[in-house]
């Protein structure tokens, strides 16, 4: 009897001291990430876009919505407007740089919103199980049966188009994916020995979730989150294409939406912001892939 108890106590002690450490970014993590070529490329493009967004005002001291040139100037035909002008005579290069602000802001804000919603609901469902899990899982399924774009259209239409309502609409439409992943991760981790150990020494729910479960689910969250940013940028473009962009702000999507009608006469108005979106979405996907390789312990090259 005593022996058994002792053995058990020793095992708990061993587990607690040697438990899996959370993988917070460290220099070795960065080094591994930099060694991953696709992640490096993706990160570089993304940083360039972010710099353009932040320093847009310093690069071009102009209002991107001002009608500065002759409408329908093709790219590379006028030195004043290297990438041409749109149907109102707005400079497309200046537009592309400034549009990075709204597109990235909407992308990250929407992804943050859906990550917060998804992680909270996913952890609650996976950790507590039972009727909480049943309720949240049904809710997730209800949201998953609705096409995300249609749901975003409804939210944006009801709130009337603005940067805030668009980010909100996309965020609300895209949380189920991350909720399901986090729930599955939580279910797996909940039964792991180190969580059992934490339970047995009487750690509270909050501490267990914040200290043991979330850090171990982080790789999955980061990877899914970066893909959510990419899909939010694409959804914003789709909304703008449908005429649901914020008319007071310039984004890559709104540039495509405006150029759409002139597609047969001046395809460059749609193609140039389209290229910007492609580059950023591709780089986000590459970065996510790279993160997955580096963070996923089962990848084998750790």
């Amino acid at each position: 009897m005593t022996v058994v108890l002792l053995t058990k106590a020793t095992r708990v002690a061993t587990l607690l001291s040697g438990r899996k450490r959370a993988k917070w970014p460290s220099s070795s993590f960065l080094r591994r990430l930099l060694r991953n070529r696709s992640a490096t490329f993706g990160g570089a493009v993304l940083i360039a876009a972010a710099l353009a967004a932040v320093f847009a005002g310093a690069i071009f001291d102009a209002d991107p919505l001002d009608m500065v040139g002759r409408p329908y100037t093709w790219p590379f035909t006028d030195r004043l407007h290297p990438l041409g002008t749109d149907m109102l005579g707005r400079d497309i290069l200046v537009g592309l740089v400034y549009a990075a602000r709204v597109s990235l802001a909407i992308g990250f804000a929407a992804a943050a919103l859906s990550t917060i919603l998804g992680v909270s609901l996913g952890v609650l469902a996976g950790y507590f199980g039972g009727w909480t899990d049943g309720l949240i899982s049904r809710l997730t399924e209800v949201f998953q049966t609705m096409p995300p774009l249609i749901l975003a259209v409804v939210v944006v239409t009801v709130l009337s188009p603005s940067v805030g309502s668009i980010a909100c609409g996309i965020g609300i439409a895209s949380w189920p994916q991350i909720a399901r992943i986090v729930r599955a991760e939580t279910l797996r981790l909940r039964d792991s020995e180190f969580v059992q150990a934490a339970v047995s020494v009487g750690e509270g729910h909050l501490r267990i979730v914040a200290g043991h479960i979330l850090p171990n689910a982080l790789p999955q969250i980061v990877v899914t989150g970066s893909i959510l940013v990419a899909s939010a940028i694409l959804t914003e473009a789709a909304l703008a294409f449908l005429g649901l962009g914020d008319p007071n702000e310039i984004s890559w999507g709104s540039m495509i939406g405006a150029g759409r009608e002139a597609m047969r006469t001046a395809w460059y108005m749609t193609a140039l912001p389209g290229l910007a979106i492609t580059a950023v979405v591709l780089s986000l996907n590459l970065l996510a892939d790279g993160l997955n390789d580096v963070l996923n312990p089962r990848a084998g090259n750790v």
């Binding site: 209002d63 919505l65 001002d66 009608m67 149907m87 109102l88 005429g243 008319p247 007071n248 939406g257 405006a258 009608e261």
Partner: peptide
């Protein structure tokens, strides 16, 4: 239609 929104953008820049 979109033409009328574009016209509104025109007024915004003119009034600015």
């Amino acid at each position: 239609g979109d033409d009328y929104i574009r016209a509104a953008e025109f007024y915004r820049q003119a009034l600015k």
